[in-house]
Each structure stands twice: as structure tokens, then as C-alpha cells.
Design a protein around this nucleic acid. Structure first.
Length: 817
RNA sequence: GCCGUCGUGGUGGAACUGGUAGACACGCAGGUCUCAAAAACCUGUCUCUUCACCGAGGUGUCGGUUCGAUUCCGACCGACGGCACCA
């Protein structure tokens, strides 16, 4: 049989292709989605995480979040708010650049072509974006302001050059920030990341660590995202304590080692001190010939540690290694004892002070180290396991408890003595963060040039604001060089310039900004995208900020969402924005997986293209199915079977237009009121799946019992945010001249959703034994009367003594016998 | 190891502040229409027992609070996510 002939029987009853196109055209022509220019009245700023336009176009997972924001945007509009709902392109960065290199075209050309595809795809879904507010991070009029923000950071000392070893991806040939790593590998390409000392620009995000942490309280964000940020910032309280170096022959600029500890209460048990191999004190000691007796061994260890990769070094399961600095001792300030000094790579150079005190009795790592090198172990907190058995570690050694062998602190509770002991040893109570400064330069072509000129006499000088943007020049080869310079370094005519300060010869900075730069403030530019005087007009900023609703992927929890908060707080400090946080309410969108349960990927051949779905079912079925699949933030597999349910539903809705009556049963009117209430309430909690189900329930009832024209019109209005094309079609078929999206959200009489009568459940010993239909407000006595008259209840209660009666108004009666 | 989120039919999932567990939808089975199929429509569909009614069990496991627990509390098991030699 020729299968093709039979497949023609199309699922949809209405011509969605025609209807979609007709209304998309009409919306555009009438400017239905233009943002109001008046800065008055209630406003709603609804934002999506803007995409980078990759060469492969959208798959069905990408628009899921956009559908949700579009629904809320249309809803807000119908409720009378002024809505800002923009879209744009995050087009700088490695993905766009790699695509361009692979396909041998200029990144700019690739990006332009990809944007055309993306825009066509987005428009086919019928989103209500105001394209007048479109931004593109690679547009010089845009990145002028990205560079401007960098200059402000530089002026405030928050952007600085550093030569510390950083993460280097040998495959992408660029330095990376900590945030760009995933388990020690490059987040982009999966290569093992190396530590490489190189000159780089760094932003002092650590200055904002406390505020970034503290202000999470103000945000209506998912708990998981807030928790990720808290973990990332990693606050801990403890003490900085100095251990004096005991060696009179030494002439040190610094004659003490400062350690950081969260357990100052255990200091009487500190039997040695360990420095990170990179600690400056080590190199200083090495410089003084003879101060370390085993110099060459130490030197060797330090070099080996520097070569080691981050993953190898930070593997907790690795056996601990270290070298004693022979001849160097320090004094434990708690008990005056002379103790040894070691270097070991388990101590990290860039956390705390790069030095720790070794308390093997109460720290697992110190225990391992001390056991290996036969260092003494002194217990200072009494333990249940108080055998003098030092062969095995017990986790309860970590617990707090009664102090012993701790001088005058003996007998006190360790936990509450922390601060007193810190004071006793002359230490300082401090707060430390795991968050590191943001490595901000990339040795790649496709990014914003960092607007700095290096001058031999003036050093690094910022390009004057009036000369911004520093445009990204064209190059012959945009492949990364791997030399620590970007391909821009090859363009001498661009690199060589004059110093803005002294006019002498200068060289431009050739590193570019990371992908995250443009997206750290784009939500501000959306408000006022064509402003040539400022990054955003203050009056407009004040009206539109904060972003009321922000939707995007949870994978941005510790990248984009931290960077943007940092920049926003900085701009607030500058007086450029009026709020201390950018995004009030955040929803994370759950992934749509392939039908096989795996992540959609070309590699698995499980990618579903929205173009195909829309061709078969239309934009409205596509939108509604994505919302009906399940809870918005859950990740769920695409199903070519289940989408049929939504298609059938919209067919039924369309079909119903030919069966309208002048009046209807009060049941239908009441259910409509309930449905409106449900859909309205669900907007707040992003429970779109239950909204769709409520609408299905309503349509099932309306088909069975009949529906009036006026009720159907109201239904079409609440359907509008979900299925805008079909709704417009039906609205106009009902005789309306205006657009349904510009109509007012339907109201209902609140008393309608209060049932007058309901089903009462009669229980005996909490088991349901009967149901009685009766008025909701039936009083207690009357209800008991009715319940007892029920034949089944009567039979069951016979010869039983009622011990207790529970009465829940409008719901149930429970006899306990 | 620490922290967070979550465990409900064959499947996706629903259940408001504790009150009829499984809404809605998919799938499946039977039926209507058809020469036949597709589509559409109707009926049924948690498990066990039963012809059926009735009954019993049932929301990861084990306990607890309560007249009543998917919901609250405790312990455990499992999944996903974040952090992790961070002192």
C-alpha cells in the first residue's frame, strides 16, 4: 500500500498555517506589541535570557521559556499593565567564533545569518516581542557601553592586571574564569584545564562577595539557584592567627606566618604549620641561602606543585605529600611550643592565607598528613572514643566538646571558646570567601576589545570615554594564536596608537572580553536601546527596573546570574541605576529532553525542530503542548504521541464555534468562572500545565452541556495567552473588530466560584462510607441529622456508640465509633 | 563528606492552608462509523478478591503525631543539582 496517501488525513481540523500567518501579519501591521512610551501606570518588565544565535537554529527546547514569558506578557497586557518584553542576541563569544572558524566565514557574517534564522523561527511561534527594542551585543553601538562599564570599573580600581597563574584551556587557547570550569575541565570543550601564569585582566568581584551573598535574601528566586550561589560564594568565618618564625639569624621582612582556621578552639593541638608551595614566605626563605637546610628538595617540590594540573592537585583522595622546611620553626602562640613548618600541595595558595596550622587530632587532612610524616598528634577535645588509639580516624574527632590540654581553657566548651581563644593568641576574627576574582580577558578574536592602551611611560591607560567604542577590527585570521595574545595582535596598524594621556607611542590591549560581558547588563539596554548619550536614560531606567520576571536555564546560576548581579551593584554604586538588584523574580526553565530521554543533540539524532512541529500542528499546539508537558521547571522528554492531546483539544475549541447558543446551564457559567480564576492564579506560580488542564475540563463540559456566545468569548480571552493565533481567529469570528490580545482580561462574579451545594463525605472511623449532596452552609445539626438518616450509615452505626464527631464545613462528617 | 530539590498508575502528571489519592492528557482494551483503514466519537482503564455489588490494600521504606497524612515530624533508602584537600 502507498502509505503516503493515507498519511494525508491531517490531524488538525482548522487550517493553522493560514491562521498563524494571517494574525502574525496583522499584529505586525497594527503594532500590537509596541512598548508604551509613556512612563506611567503599572509596569511589567518580562525578560528571557537572550540566546546566542548558533548555526544550528532552535530546537524545541529553546523556546520553552520564551513561551512562558510570552504567556505572562500577554496576560499582563490584558490586565492593563505597560509591558516591556524584548528579545536580542548574545552574539559574542566562543560558540559563535568556533562556528565561524569551522565554516570558514567571518564571525560577523555567521552571526548575521544565524540571527535571520533565529528571528524567523521565533516569529513563527508568534511571540509578542517589541523588535524596536532588539539589541545585539556585537553591535558597536552596544559594546560601546560594555566598554564604558569596563572603564568605570578600571577607574574605581575594580579592574586590574595580574600575572598570577590562571586556568588555561589548551584547546580553546584562552584563559578562563573559575566560573568557566566544570569539574576542572573547560565547560565549553571538555579539555583538561592547565594552570598557566600569564598577564590577564581581572575584575574584583570579591569586593562584592558579602553583598552578593547578603542580598540573595531580597530575591524571589528558586531556592536551588540561591543555594548554588551561596555555595559558590562560600562564606566561612574563622580566625587569622600569627605564628612567629623562630630563627634569629633570619632577616625577614615578614617574620611570621599567618594561618586561617575555622577551628581556633583547637589551636593547643596545633603541632606543625603547613604553607602552600606558592606562599611568598617560601620563596623569601629560599632566597636567603642556608635558612632552609634542605633547599634543593623544597625547591623541587615547589616546582612540581606549580606544574600540576588543578584536577590532580585538588583530588582529595590523592595521598598527601609535603616537605619539611628543615631548620625553620614557628612558635604556637597558644602554648609557646616550637613546632615544625612544612610545605604541601594540599594547602591551596589562593584561599585563606595560603597557610594552615596542622591539628591532626581534629582534622582529617591534618591527620592523614601527620600519620604519614610521623608528626605528633595532640588531642585537645575530649572524645567518647577516648582510647589513646591514634591508629584510626573517627569522624567524631571533628565534633566540638570539652577542651582538654588547653591551658586555662581546660573544661570549657570548645565551640563557645572560639573567639576567646582567638583573642588569647592575638588573632583576628575574619570572614573568608571561596569566590575568586573574575578573570576577564580572553585571547580570542570574537569579543569586545578591552579599551586600554599600554604606554611605556604612563602604564595602562583607559581609552577616553568620548573615543569609545574601540571597534573590533577585521583580521585575516581569527583563529586563536595560543601565544597569550589574541589574533588582534597581528594587526599592527590597529595595535600601535598613541597614549591618550601623554600622546607618546602606545599599544592597544589585544585581549578581548569574555562572552559574559555583554550579557551582564543587556537588560538595561533593552529599556533604552538607541540612547547615544548614556547606557540607559535615568527616567526610563527608574520606571522599568527591576526586571519583574526573568526566565532562563538553571545552568546560569553561578555564571551569568552572579556576573550580572555584580555589575548591577557596581552600576548602582556609580549612581547609574536605581536598584541594588536587577532581577526580582526568577524562574528556571526545565530542559526538554529527546524522546529517548537523553539531552537533545545532533550526536544522538534526537533533535526535534520546532519548524517541523509548527508545520504539522501550528504554533498554538506547539506552545500549548510545551506548557502542558509538566511542571515548568522540570525537565521532561518530548513526546510525538502526547502532543496529539493538545491538538485534539484545540480542534474541539475550534469546532465549538459552530455550536454556540444564546444561553447555557448555570453549571457551565459557574465552571467558566472557576476556570478564569484557576488560569489567573496559575500565572503567578507558573503552573501552566494545570491552566491548560482546567481549560480542557471546561471545554469538555461546554461540549456536553452547551455554551453561550458570551461565555465562549470569555473563554477565547483566557485562551489567548496560550494559543494567540486561534484566539484571534475565533475572536474575530465572534464579530469583534479589535484584537483579543488588546482586550481586557475577563472578570467574573466571585460568588460564582463559591459552590452553593457540594458533595459532603460521610466517614465512619475516617473511612468514606457515604456521600450526600447538600448546601455548603448546612449547619452542623442538620447535617448530622441527614448523615444519620442515610441508609448505609444507619446500618453501620447500628448498635455502635459514637465517641466523637468531626465536622468540616462544606466537606465532611466523620463519626468515630 | 556538606548543602539544596525531589520520590504518586503502563506514561507525563493532578490534589487549595492535613479532609473522597490518581484530575487532565497520552497509551491500551472494547465499541460506533467504514468494504477496510486512518481520523473522529462513545465506554472502560491503581492493585487484589468478586460475574457484579461489597470489601481490602495503596503516594520510596520504617516509625510517630492526628478522628483523618501524598501533605506535618523523625530515621533510613534512592534520584537529580550545587560545593568540595576551601583549613
Amino acid at each position: 500500500m502507498m502509505k503516503g496517501i493515507y498519511v494525508i488525513c491531517h490531524l488538525m481540523k482548522y487550517d493553522h498555517g493560514l491562521i498563524d500567518a494571517k494574525w502574525q501579519e496583522k499584529w505586525a501591521k497594527e503594532g500590537a506589541y509596541k512598548t508604551s512610551k509613556e512612563l506611567k501606570g503599572p509596569k511589567y518588565y518580562i525578560l528571557d535570557m537572550f540566546p546566542y544565535p548558533s548555526g544550528t537554529g532552535l530546537h524545541v527546547g529553546h523556546p520553552k521559556g520564551y513561551i512562558a514569558t510570552d504567556i505572562v506578557a500577554r496576560f499582563a497586557k490584558m490586565r492593563g499593565a505597560s509591558v516591556l518584553h524584548p528579545m536580542g542576541w548574545d552574539a559574542f563569544g566562543l560558540p559563535a567564533e568556533n562556528f565561524a572558524i569551522k565554516n570558514k566565514i567571518h564571525p560577523r557574517a555567521a552571526v548575521e545569518a544565524n540571527i535571520v534564522t533565529y528571528k524567523r523561527q521565533l516569529e513563527s511561534i508568534g511571540f509578542s516581542y517589541d523588535w524596536d527594542h532588539e539589541v545585539n551585543t556585537t553591535d558597536p553601538d552596544y559594546y560601546r557601553w560594555t566598554q564604558w562599564i569596563f572603564v568605570q570599573l578600571w577607574k574605581k580600581g575594580l579592574a586590574y592586571e595580574s600575572r598570577e597563574p590562571i586556568n588555561w584551556c589548551p584547546s580553546c587557547k584562552t584563559g578562563l574564569a573559575n566560573e568557566d570550569l566544570e569539574g576542572g575541565k573547560c565547560e565549553r570543550c571538555g579539555s583538561d584545564v592547565e594552570k598557566k601564569p600569564m598577564r590577564q585582566w581581572v575584575l574584583k568581584i570579591t569586593d562584592y562577595a558579602d553583598r552578593l551573598l547578603e542580598d540573595l535574601k531580597l530575591l524571589d528566586w528558586p531556592e536551588s539557584i540561591k543555594e548554588s550561589q551561596r555555595n559558590w560564594i562560600g562564606r566561612s568565618e574563622g580566625a587569622e592567627i600569627q605564628f612567629k618564625i623562630k630563627n634569629d639569624e633570619l632577616r625577614m621582612t615578614n617574620d611570621r606566618i599567618t594561618v586561617f582556621t575555622t577551628r581556633p578552639d583547637t589551636i593547643f593541638g596545633a603541632t606543625y604549620v603547613v604553607l602552600a608551595p606558592e606562599n611568598e614566605i617560601v620563596s623569601e626563605l629560599l632566597k636567603q641561602k642556608g635558612s632552609i637546610k634542605n633547599e634543593s628538595l623544597v625547591f623541587e617540590y615547589v616546582n612540581a606543585a606549580k606544574k600540576m594540573s588543578e584536577i590532580d592537585r585538588s583530588d582529595a583522595k590523592k595521598e598527601k605529600t609535603g616537605v619539611n622546611l628543615e631548620g625553620v620553626f614557628v612558635i604556637n602562640p597558644a602554648n609557646g611550643k616550637k613546632i615544625s613548618v612544612w610545605i604541601a600541595d594540599y594547602v591551596l595558595p589562593d584561599y585563606g592565607t595560603g597557610a594552615v596550622m596542622g591539628v591532626p587530632a581534629h582534622d582529617k587532612r591534618d591527620w592523614d598528613f601527620a600519620r604519614k610524616y610521623k608528626l605528633s598528634i595532640v588531642r585537645v577535645i575530649s572524645s567518647n572514643e577516648n582510647k589513646s588509639d591514634f591508629d584510626n580516624w573517627h569522624d567524631d574527632y571533628l565534633n566540638s566538646g570539652k577542651l582538654i590540654q588547653s591551658g586555662s581553657f581546660d573544661g570549657q566548651d570548645s565551640l563557645s571558646s572560639k573567639k576567646a581563644i582567638t583573642e588569647f593568641v592575638g588573632g583576628k576574627w575574619v570572614i573568608k570567601y571561596k569566590l575568586r576574582d573574575w578573570v576577564f580577558s580572553r585571547q580570542r578574536y570574537w569579543g569586545e576589545p578591552i579599551p586600554i592602551v599600554h604606554c611605556q611611560s604612563c602604564g595602562a591607560v583607559a581609552v577616553p570615554e568620548a573615543e569609545l567604542p574601540v571597534k573590533l577590527p577585521d583580521v585575516d585570521h581569527y583563529e586563536p594564536t595560543g601565544t597569550g595574545e589574541s589574533p588582534l595582535a597581528a594587526i599592527e596598524s590597529w595595535v600601535n596608537t598613541s597614549c591618550p594621556q601623554c600622546g607618546g607611542p602606545g599599544k592597544r590591549e589585544t585581549n578581548t572580553m569574555p562572552q559574559w560581558a555583554g550579557s551582564s547588563w543587556y537588560y538595561l539596554r533593552f529599556i533604552d536601546p538607541r540612547n547615544t548619550e548614556a547606557l540607559v536614560d535615568p527616567a526610563k531606567e527608574k520606571y522599568w527596573m527591576k526586571v519583574d520576571l526573568y526566565v532562563g536555564g538553571a545552568e546560569h546560576a553561578t555564571r551569568h546570574l552572579i556576573y550580572a548581579r555584580f555589575w548591577h551593584k557596581f552600576l548602582h554604586d556609580l549612581g547609574a541605576v536605581s536598584t541594588i538588584e536587577p532581577f526580582l523574580k526568577l524562574w528556571s526553565v526545565g530542559l526538554i529532553m529527546g524522546e529517548d530521554g537523553r539531552k537533545m543533540s545532533k550526536r544522538f539524532g534526537n533533535v526535534v525542530n520546532p519548524d517541523d512541529v509548527i508545520a504539522e500542528y501550528g504554533a498554538d499546539v506547539f506552545r500549548m503542548y510545551e506548557m502542558f508537558m509538566g511542571p515548568f521547571s522540570d525537565s521532561i522528554s518530548w513526546s510525538t504521541e502526547k502532543i496529539k492531546g493538545v491538538a485534539r483539544f484545540l480542534d474541539k475549541v475550534y469546532d465549538l464555534k459552530d455550536h454556540l447558543a444564546d444561553s447555557e446551564s448555570p453549571d457551565v457559567t459557574r465552571l467558566l468562572a472557576k476556570t478564569i480564576a484557576k488560569v489567573t492564579d496559575d500565572m503567578d506560580t507558573f503552573s501552566f500545565n494545570t491552566s491548560v488542564s482546567a481549560m480542557m475540563i471546561f471545554i469538555n463540559e461546554a461540549r456536553e452541556k452547551g455554551i453561550s456566545r458570551s461565555s465562549f468569548a470569555k473563554f477565547v480571552q483566557i485562551l489567548c495567552p496560550f494559543a494567540p493565533h486561534l484566539s484571534e481567529e475565533l475572536w474575530s469570528l465572534l464579530g469583534h473588530e479589535d484584537l483579543v490580545v488588546l482586550s481586557s482580561w475577563p472578570t467574573f462574579d466571585p460568588s460564582m466560584i463559591q459552590n452553593e451545594t457540594g458533595t459532603w463525605v460521610i466517614q465512619i472511623n475516617s473511612k468514606v462510607r457515604a456521600q450526600i449532596i447538600a448546601p455548603i452552609d448546612t449547619p452542623l445539626e442538620e447535617m448530622l441529622e441527614m448523615a444519620k438518616k442515610d441508609p448505609k450509615i444507619m446500618a453501620l452505626l447500628e448498635s455502635k456508640e459514637i465517641k466523637k464527631t468531626i465536622f468540616v464545613r462544606g466537606k465532611l462528617v466523620n463519626f468515630v465509633v
